[in-house]
Design a protein around this nucleic acid. Structure first.
Lengths: 333, 333
DNA sequence: TTGAAAGCGCTACCAA
DNA sequence: TTGGTAGCGCTTTCAA
C-alpha cells in the first residue's frame, strides 16, 4: 500500500505539501503540484479515509436502520436516502434489524463506534430505549416511524388522518355505506390510531353509523391473505374494505380471487401506501400513495443539514400523500 | 467525547492496561480490570473504531455494489449478505449504481479509500474495466452477474442452461408444441445465451421445430407489459411463453388480462427467478426459483473466507435452482 | 510557498 | 502483570 509518505519521498517534497495538493487546501507552486500529481498517478496512491477521519473527526458516514429491506417501500426509501446521500458525499451503512430491539441497540452502538455522523431510523415502531440510546450517543437522527414517542425527536411523516379521511370519503362518494377497515395489529400505533380516526370521522360526517374493524395480525401479504377468512362470512353485509396497507389489500384480493369472489364486483377493496406491487395486482388497487423515495430523500437532506449545523431547517416534516384512483372500487348506484 | 486516555487517567492506570481490558488481549489483574470497567461504565466510553482500524489495518467493512435495490430479488440478496455478514461482524456499505459504469467505478474507489476488505458485485453485467479496477485495488471480490467476463474472477451463479432446459421440458410434457421465449435485451448476456440454449435444446430433443424469440427490450414490469403488443397478434399460433424473468412475465400477464385474454386458458406463461411477486399474481406464476437470499449468503461467506485467508473454499460456486409449479400453465390434451 | 512536528485514538511491542 | 512508547496515515498548526 502506498502512503502519503511514499508520495512525498518519491516527489522530493514534504508530506505537508502532498497533503496540500490532494486537498487543494493551500497554495502549492505549479511545478511542484504537477510533479506530485505525476507521482500520485504513477503510484496509484489513494488517501486512506480511515486516517483522514481520525484527524478530521469526520466520517461522512450515515447509518440507516431499517427492519426489513424486503418490504418494497423500505427499499424505496433506502434508495432515496442513498441516492441523495451520495450527492452530498455521505456514505450509507445499512443495518437491518428485523424488528428486533436488541439488534437495533447493537447497531446504534456499532454506528457510534464507527463514528457515524448521523442516523436515520425507519421502522414501524421504536422502543423508547432506542430513542434514549440515540440521544445518549449524542447523534443526529431522523425518524420515520409509525410511532413518534418523543416529540423532541426529529422526524418525517405523513398525515395519516387526512389520508384516511380522504380515502373513506371517496368510498362514500362512490355510494358505499358499509365500509370496513382492516388494521394490522391489535395494539395500535400512533399512526394507526390516526388513520382509524380519519376513517371514523369521514363516516360520522356523512352520518353513516356502520363501521367495522378487522385485525389482520400483521402487515405482510400472508396476513392479508389469511385475514380473508374473517371477511368472507361478512361479505353480504359489507361493500368495501379499506386496508391499512397495500400488502394486506393484495393478500386479501388474492384470497378472494382464489375463492371465486370478484373484486370489485363482490366487494370493493382499497389499500394504503402506494407500494409498487399495487399496480401489479388485478384489479389494480385504488390506494393512498406515500412518497417513499421522497421520504428517504427528505430524511437524509434534513439529517445532513443538522450535521452541517444549518439552522434553517425544519426538523418536523410532514410530506404530502396522493390519492391514486384505480380499479378496485365499484361505484354503487 | 471520552477517549482511552480519559479512562486511563480516571482509573489511574496506563492506556495499555485499558486497551487490554477492552480487548481482553492480555491478562489484567482482577481489581484493576474491575475498576477500569467501572470507569468505562460511568463515562460511557466506547472505543473509536476509526482509530482502531488505522492501527490494526482492519476495517471489517464489505462493500456491496448493486444496480437497483428496487428489484425485489436484489433486496433479497442484500438481505442475505447483510444478515450473514453481521454474524461474522462485518459491516455492509451499500452502493447502488443504477446501471452506471462510472458510478460503479466511483464506488470502487470509495470502497478502496474506506479500506473495505472485500467487495460483492451484484449486477446484470459488469464492464471489463470494473473487473480491472477491482483487481487494481487488489480487493477480494465475489461476483454475481449475468456475464462473467473473466474466469479468474470468483463468482456465485446458477446453471441457467439446466434451469431453462427443465422449464421447457415441463411445458412440452404438458402438451405444448408452440413455445416462445421472451428475452430481455437484443444483446445477449452470457447467462441469457445459456438460457436460450437450454430452451432450444429441450425443443430439439423432442423434435419440436417451432421456436420463437421475442425481445422485451428490458427486464422490468413495464417492459413485459409493453411487450404484450408483440405477442397478442401471434396468440393463435403460440400456446406458451417462457419469459426470461418473472417481472416480464407478470407485466405480460397483466397486459393480457387488461385486453381480455385469459392466462392460462388462452396462453400459458412461465417466468424465471422466483421473485416474491410471482406468487402475488393471478394466476400464480409457474417459474424457476433462484435462491436469492442464499446467493447473497454464499457470496459473503465465501468472501469472508477469502479475507480471512482460508484456502479451503471453492470460489466458483454454482447454486441449485428449484422448479416452482403453480397455475399459469394449462395442460394441453 | 514550504517543511517540521504535533497529534487524532488506538494497538502492540519492549522493558521492567 | 504493568507502563512507556512507537507508530498507523493523515491534517494542521507554526516557523521559516
Amino acid at each position: 500500500m502506498v502512503t502519503i509518505k511514499d508520495v512525498a519521498r518519491l516527489s522530493g517534497v514534504s508530506i505537508s505539501t502532498v497533503s496540500r495538493v490532494i486537498n487543494d487546501s493551500k497554495p502549492v507552486s505549479p511545478e511542484i503540484r504537477k510533479n506530485v500529481l505525476k507521482v500520485i498517478e504513477e503510484t496509484g496512491y489513494r488517501p486512506n479515509d480511515v486516517a483522514r477521519s481520525l484527524v478530521t473527526k469526520r466520517s461522512y458516514l450515515i447509518g440507516v436502520i431499517v427492519n426489513d429491506l424486503s418490504n418494497s417501500y423500505v427499499a424505496e426509501m433506502v434508495k432515496g436516502v442513498e441516492e441523495i446521500g451520495k450527492m452530498y458525499n455521505f456514505d450509507i451503512l445499512l443495518c437491518s434489524s428485523y424488528y428486533d430491539k436488541d439488534a437495533q441497540i447493537n447497531y446504534l452502538s456499532l454506528l457510534n463506534r464507527k463514528q457515524a455522523e448521523g442516523i436515520i431510523l425507519i421502522g414501524y415502531h421504536f422502543d423508547p430505549v432506542i430513542i434514549e440510546t440515540v440521544n445518549k450517543y449524542n447523534k443526529h437522527a431522523i425518524y420515520f416511524t409509525r410511532d413518534i414517542l418523543d416529540e423532541k425527536a426529529d422526524y418525517v411523516r405523513i398525515d395519516g388522518y387526512a389520508a384516511s379521511y380522504e380515502m373513506t370519503g371517496y368510498l362514500i362518494k362512490k355510494g358505499h355505506k358499509k365500509i370496513a377497515f382492516m388494521t394490522d395489529f391489535d395494539e395500535k400505533s400512533v399512526y394507526e390510531t390516526k388513520k382509524i380516526a380519519g376513517y371514523k370521522q369521514a363516516l360520522e360526517e356523512k352520518e353513516i353509523s356502520f363501521s367495522k374493524i378487522y385485525t389482520a395480525g400483521g402487515r405482510r401479504y400472508q396476513h392479508g391473505y389469511d385475514a380473508a377468512v374473517q371477511i368472507i362470512p361478512d361479505l353480504n353485509e359489507i361493500s368495501a374494505i379499506f386496508c391499512t396497507n397495500d400488502e394486506l389489500a393484495i393478500g386479501l384480493i388474492n384470497h378472494l380471487y382464489d375463492k371465486g369472489f370478484k373484486v370489485p364486483e363482490d366487494v370493493s377493496i382499497v389499500g394504503y401506501g402506494g407500494y409498487k406491487e399495487s399496480q401489479f395486482v388485478r384489479p389494480t388497487l385504488t390506494t393512498i400513495s406515500e412518497p417513499y423515495y421522497d421520504i428517504g430523500a427528505v430524511c437524509i437532506r434534513t439529517l445532513i443539514k443538522k450535521i452541517e449545523g444549518d439552522k434553517s431547517f425544519n426538523s418536523k416534516i410532514e410530506l404530502p400523500f396522493s390519492f391514486v384512483k384505480r380499479n378496485s372500487v365499484k361505484e354503487l348506484v
